[in-house]
């Protein structure tokens, strides 16, 4: 049995554990809700994190943490974590915590796979770095949005009050810059 076979076989259980690990960071009072409410619209956070985790799992198992394939799933999870009050160390811990889950699986009667595990861990480290990029991207986005909101408000007002003037083409550029 390869590590891949093992992980495919045990997917449901590991993903569930992983999901629970991510929720560890939330107060008990809300964890339960995120875990149990199954309606994806009544519980968008639980839904997105669960979906993201599950997708990420497949990428790790099937594509060796291929960064391109992992990106949307990392984004799905981290986009939410980035606007909650966690420091990055907590918000992103879930990537590294996966290592322990895998080790636990392997130590339960599959010691022969430890070589493969080492390789997987290297990949996971890369994934963790990528997660950091995503996190920073989200944070930067937040600040950018904050600035844009203010600027649009002020600028729009000034523009319409005819208090600013542009070169003929300038107007268009400004609009496009707005993102």
């Amino acid at each position: 049995m390869t590590l891949r076979d093992l992980l495919i076989k045990r997917k449901d259980d590991i993903v569930k554990e992983w999901f629970d690990l991510v929720l560890e960071a939330y107060p008990d009072e809300s964890k339960d809700f995120f875990r149990k409410q199954q309606n994806r619209f009544a519980n968008p956070m639980g839904h997105n994190i669960r979906e993201g985790i599950s997708g990420l799992y497949d990428v790790i198992v099937d594509h060796g943490c291929d960064s391109e394939k992992a990106a949307p799933f990392l984004d799905q999870i981290i986009r939410i974590r980035a606007i909650q009050e966690f420091p990055p160390s907590v918000a992103l811990a879930f990537v590294l915590e996966f290592k322990e889950l895998v080790r636990r699986e392997v130590s339960a009667g599959h010691e022969e796979l430890s070589e493969e595990v080492n390789k997987l861990e290297q990949n996971l480290d890369k994934l963790a770095l990528q997660a950091f990029d995503v996190y920073m991207g989200c944070r930067e986005r937040i600040f950018e949005l904050r600035v844009n909101e203010l600027r649009n408000l002020m600028f729009g007002a000034l523009e319409r009050a005819n208090l600013v003037s542009f070169p003929a083409e300038g107007e268009k550029e400004v609009k496009e810059n707005k993102i």
């Binding site: 149990k36 409410q37 199954q38 309606n39 994806r40 009544a42 839904h47 669960r50």
Partner: peptide, 13 residues
Amino acid sequence: MEMREGPKLAYGS
């Protein structure tokens, strides 16, 4: 009750 995740219908508490 509408779209639920998972194989079986889950009921909200």
